[in-house]
Design a protein around this nucleic acid. Structure first.
Length: 957
RNA sequence: GCGCGGAUGGUGGAAUUUGGUAGACACGAGAGACUUAAAAUCUCUUGGCCUCACGGUCGUGCGGGUUCAAGUCCCGCUCUGCGCACCA
């Protein structure tokens, strides 16, 4: 018998696929198209890791599945080659990045080929190839013409080690994403893409995308839409006007001061003589302080009074103007109206600087997660809840309340000989007038560190009590509750309690919040707000804006957190920005016929640290002529962010060798959008930029769709055996080629990666797990060989073989559709085990040929080499690809018996095997007659017998 | 702090759409067969507890609830992963 030897089989089939161009996508084929792609990798010097291997295993399983269904599959591959690692390597060694890149690509390509990936290599692209970046540059010039690319002097994140500007999303926790150095702010003239123009359309489309919710939420948050209003506060003694942005115009009557960001243009102007010095000092300090320091601050708010006042347009009150760095200059108008009663930050600030507070919203609590509190840091919630039973009817009421000052609650009321617990009950009794309070149980406390620091002797288990009450003097309770305006009593049937969120439907009892200094950030009833009193805050929001608009002091306004996309990089290894600076005509786009602007060869790749790229030190490249006037001019020396190149490559794949256009719209429209886009990184940046560019391309008429990616498949990471992240420095990286060369082969590797768990989950690599998969493939192989070499024939178990076959086809097809590869593979294992059991008596030729043929075709998306080999050995004339996907027949799956589960009171007591056509009557009868059931019935008459057709009987006694 | 997930044996994980046999499939472990021996392969056992066994009983992070029936639905928590973070 031939042994299963992947190192023979795999190279053989890889060679065949290459020679026959088996996976070249045909632009003209008359078949439904299917476009799938992984996120093209940066070919690093370390080579491919198991994460890449996982991604290719996913892509290839899907691609092969669709190909087997007769679809015209486009599965291309390319390289995202611009970037810092190659450049840093060049700085260290003097080797040109293009050379290193070439070597790395060859390495990656070999690895991917040895995985047996069914890729159309004729479409391979490389972003640092001038034939590619020529069109990246062309797109830039088109954007420039449409005013979607512009230059602006601005403070930017600057990495002192990499000596480059970084985009917001490349700064992680105040540190450079590449080298981990703390970044600083530097003012420079930079190029931007106007992505903010597309905030609304990009947001609009998110809902309809077939993407993981996680990614959609991340993008929504990134865009960060807020609707609210701009309101004008006129300076009391002068002509200046401060415009603030707020999302809570309903709180305007509670605005007791106005705060400017230190960078606000009026910040210095408004300082009166008396306060000039302190204002100046504060601003200087704040601006000097890097934003990282601001971030790392304990969030202790600081600020300074200007001495000036503005007029609150709502109530005409004179309102002081402060400067504080908790107000960000880059968002909204860089100025806010502070409403300490209803905003956490303003509250903290007001408390610190003893500024007044005006309550304008009575807190009818609707949000369980935001109960009122005096100050988040100092308090812990005491939640008491009670279930009120109606004395005569079968009705219940749930009441919950919160008390913000829990120090008083616990420590204030303990009397001699009384436990804290008893004190709590007594206090609730006194406060509520509820007499019959039954203490049900005690819950552990949500710890308040500060409290425990002060009260070490308090047993934390009894510090917070949750109490359940039974109330008899209901009338009194109702009176008390109704006396409170914001309280509404809702009676419900017992059944409906589950549907009634007690928190949203039943108000909290507000009487028990003491003191005026409450912070309430939620909604409620308007108070102290003139005409708007007694209305709900969420209802008057728009009316207040309309009113301000009428008065000419405000207007509705929408803002976004998203900023424009900074694309210039002061680095060598990127696509040069195709701009020529002419003393006469300013920044002029390089005309299409002069593209590409080729990246020149240099000797030393190290940035000079002057804020310019190395390109600035190549005078013969910099010096050029203006395309408009022909006069002496200079080239832009910045290069583009690598994300620019990766924002359109999915379109280039559809027409990769086009020398006159970025792509032929007809081809792009025929293939796109991408049906499945597979990756495990780039939740926001890349995926948002591709969407942005595609929206623009649609407007330019270059494509006829807005969204580039229909379905996003977001996979987890493969971790090291101990569950930690694989990393070179830890030395725990698993090299896919090593696994293949150990003798397991690519088929076992691929199958194992998909068997480990659902694609979206992280999973630790298990070197023993792959051995199990190898065993499985070997079992399939051996079964095939036994059949091929056997001269036995036998008929008798054909029906069982057929049933297993068709059941498996249905299950695997289903699982493939929903990308549940792990369960598909386990179904194939079960099928194989079943066939082993059924073969003991010999083989019935045709039935088994079919059964094994189905097995090899079902296995092909995971283990394509062995499947192809087995298929060929079974004597099939056509290739496994041509044979297509096996079909199942439901009629062959149906069994003539069924297994009925018999439960007594919901507990499993017996299993019955009955004829599939047994009537309900018969099934119930059989169930009740079962020995074990009789034992449990114990002569009692069942109250009810429930029958779920074909599944179970539940006998209720 | 806010947002989004997750919690099932010693381990990875199953239980699809619509609540209906919890632990599929594998790994690991234990026992056995073959072998001079080892590897490979094959067979059996494998959630806890009680029982020689038949079987019973508990069991899907915790506390409640709905239901004939809950891993699955509802309410309230705990822990944990990830993303964003002074965005008014």
């Amino acid at each position: 018998m031939k042994r299963y030897n992947p190192s023979d089989i795999e190279p053989k089939w890889q060679a065949i696929w290459e020679e026959t161009n088996a996976y070249v996508a045909d632009d003209t084929a008359d078949k439904p198209k299917f476009y799938i792609s992984c996120m093209f990798p940066y070919p690093s010097g370390a080579g491919m890791h198991t994460g890449h291997a996982f991604e290719h295993a996913i892509v290839d399983a899907i691609a092969r599945f669709h190909r087997a269904h007769g679809e015209n599959v486009l599965n291309p591959m390319g390289w995202d080659t611009f970037g810092l690692p190659a450049e840093n390597y060049a700085i260290k060694t003097g080797t040109a990045p293009s050379e290193v890149t070439k070597v790395n690509i060859a390495n990656f390509k070999n690895q991917i080929k040895r995985m047996g990936a069914s890729i159309d290599w004729s479409r391979e692209i490389n972003t640092s190839d001038p034939e590619y970046y020529r069109w990246t540059q062309w797109i830039f010039t088109e954007f420039y013409k449409r005013d979607l690319a512009y230059q602006k002097e601005s403070l930017q994140w600057w990495c002192p080690v990499d000596k480059t500007v970084l985009a917001n999303e490349q700064v992680e926790g105040g540190k450079c994403w590449r080298c981990g150095t703390e970044v600083i702010k530097k003012s420079m003239k930079q190029w931007f893409f106007r992505i903010t123009n597309y905030a609304e359309p990009l947001l609009d489309e998110i809902e309809d995308l077939d993407w993981p919710q996680k990614i959609k939420t991340a993008q929504t948050n990134w865009i960060g839409k807020s609707t609210g209003a701009e309101v004008e506060f006129k300076v009391a003694d002068g002509d200046d006007v401060i415009t603030v942005f707020t999302t809570r115009p309903d709180t305007i009557f509670g605005a007791t001061f106005v705060v400017l960001a230190p960078e606000h243009p009026l910040a210095r102007t408004l300082a009166t003589d008396e306060f000039k010095e302190s204002v100046e000092t504060y601003i200087t300090d704040a601006v000097k302080k890097s934003e990282i320091e601001r971030m790392n601050d304990t969030r202790e708010k600081t600020g300074v009074f200007t001495g000036s006042y503005v007029v609150n347009p709502a109530n005409g009150e004179k309102t002081p103007v402060w400067i504080a760095d908790y107000v960000l200059s880059g968002y909204g108008t860089g100025a806010i109206m502070a409403v300490p009663a209803h905003d956490e930050r303003d509250f903290a600030f007001a408390k610190k600087y003893k500024l007044p507070t005006i309550q304008v919203i009575a807190p009818t609590i609707t949000d369980p997660k935001n109960p009122p509190r005096a100050d988040k840091e100092d308090t812990t919630r005491i939640v008491a809840q009670c279930l009120v039973k109606h004395p005569t009817e079968d009705k219940y009421l749930t009441l919950k309340w919160t008390k913000h000052d829990w120090h008083a609650f616990i420590t204030g009321g303990v009397e001699d000989g009384e436990s804290i617990e008893e004190a709590a009950i007594r206090e609730i009794r006194e406060e509520t007038g509820f007499k019959n309070i039954i203490h049900k149980r005690t819950m552990p406390l949500e710890l308040n560190t500060r409290f425990y620091a002060a009260h070490k002797d308090v047993n934390r288990d009894i510090a917070v009590t949750v109490l359940e009450f039974e109330l008899k003097d209901l009338e009194r309770v109702e009176q008390k509750l109704e006396a409170h305006e914001s309280f509404e009593v809702i009676w419900t049937d017992k059944k409906d309690i589950k549907n009634l969120s007690p928190v949203t439907e039943l108000p909290y009892i507000m009487d028990w919040f003491n003191g005026a200094d409450l912070l309430h950030a939620g909604e409620g009833k308007m108070i102290n707000s003139g005409l708007f009193n007694n209305r709900k805050s969420e209802d008057v929001r728009e009316e207040i804006v309309a009113w301000l608009e009428q008065e000419g002091t405000g207007r509705a306004k929408t803002t976004y957190k998203m900023r424009d996309w900074l694309i210039s990089r002061q680095r060598y290894w990127g696509a040069p920005i195709p701009i020529i600076h002419c003393p006469e005509h300013g920044a002029v786009a390089v005309p299409e016929d002069q593209l590409p602007v080729i990246l020149p060869e240099v000797k030393d790749y190290a940035p000079k640290g002057d804020g310019k790229s190395v390109l600035a030190s190549v005078p013969e490249w910099v010096k050029t002529t203006c395309p408009t006037c022909g006069g002496a001019a200079e080239r832009e020396t910045d290069t583009m962010d690598g994300y620019a190149c990766s924002s359109w490559y999915l379109l280039r794949y559809t027409d990769p060798r086009n020398a006159v256009q970025a792509w032929d719209p007809a081809k792009a429209n025929a293939w796109s959008p991408v049906d499945y886009y597979v990756g495990g990184d780039h939740a926001v940046a890349h995926l948002l930029y591709v969407r942005f560019w595609t929206h623009v391309f649609k407007e330019m008429g270059l494509v006829d769709f807005k969204e580039p990616v229909k379905k996003l498949v977001y996979h987890g990471y493969i971790n090291a055996e101990d569950g930690s992240k694989m990393s070179k420095s830890k030395g725990n990286v698993v090299d896919p080629l090593d696994v293949i060369d150990q003798g397991y082969g690519a088929d076992a590797l691929r199958t194992y990666l998909l068997f480990m768990g659902p694609v979206e989950l992280d999973a630790p690599w298990d070197s023993r797990g792959i051995a199990g998969i190898y065993r499985f493939l070997n079992r399939v192989w051996v079964l095939g060989q036994e059949f091929i070499e056997s001269d036995k024939t036998f008929t008798g178990n054909d029906e069982a073989v057929r049933r297993a076959q068709h059941k498996t086809i249905r299950k695997v097809t289903d699982d493939q559709r929903r990308l549940s590869f792990n369960t598909a593979i386990s179904a194939l294992m079960e099928y194989t085990n079943e066939l082993y059991k059924l073969k003991v008596d010999g083989f019935s030729d045709e039935v088994w040929r079919e059964a094994l043929g189905a097995l090899s075709r079902l296995l092909a998306p995971f283990a394509p080499h062995m499947s192809a080999e087995l298929w060929q050995q079974l004597g099939n004339d056509t290739s496994i690809e041509e044979a297509g996907w096996p079909q199942w027949d439901d009629a062959l799956i149906v069994s003539d018996t069924m297994t009925i589960i018999v439960q007594v009171n919901g507990k499993l007591r017996a299993k019955l095997v009955l004829a599939a056509d047994a009537t309900e009557e018969v099934v119930k009868q059989q169930a009740l007659a079962d020995e074990n059931v009789v034992k449990f019935l114990d002569d009692m008459q069942p109250k009810k017998v429930i029958y779920i057709s074909g599944r179970l009987v539940n006998i209720v006694i």
